[in-house]
């Protein structure tokens, strides 16, 4: 089983990406949220300036969630293999 992190897109991010998820390779120590988002923008450059910068920094109005549990805007937060990162509008609900 390869070491991977799943990124799931919701709402306007999904609309722009045109896909609902992508997989990223990750080694034993994982990658940071910023590195994950950087990879996302390389695959989906249309997201640059929308939900994050090319450096993986989250734009205002967006938030990420790890495994449906932890909300964070900390781009140094480390994701471990097998974890899932949700990218979504910070305005959940309404």
């Amino acid at each position: 089983m390869p070491l991977q992190i799943c990124i799931e897109f919701y709402g306007s991010v999904r609309l722009r990406a045109g896909e609902s998820s992508m997989l990223l390779p990750a080694d034993d120590i994982g990658i940071t949220v910023g590195q994950a988002l950087s990879s996302v923008t390389r695959r989906f450059p249309q997201l640059i300036g929308f939900c994050c910068g090319s450096d993986g920094a989250l734009q205002p109005g967006f938030v990420v969630n790890v495994d449906g549990q932890l909300f964070t805007r900390d781009d140094s937060h480390r994701l471990l293999p097998g974890q899932t990162l949700l990218v979504l509008s910070a305005d959940v609900g309404g």
Partner: peptide
């Protein structure tokens, strides 16, 4: 017109459904 309202403009509040489902 900025990104903080893009959810409402592009998809509406219906966009909440998948998110809330994922968050159980």
């Amino acid at each position: 017109f900025g990104s903080s309202t893009s959810k409402y403009r592009e998809l509406g509040t219906a966009a909440n459904l998948s998110v809330l489902n994922r968050l159980k």
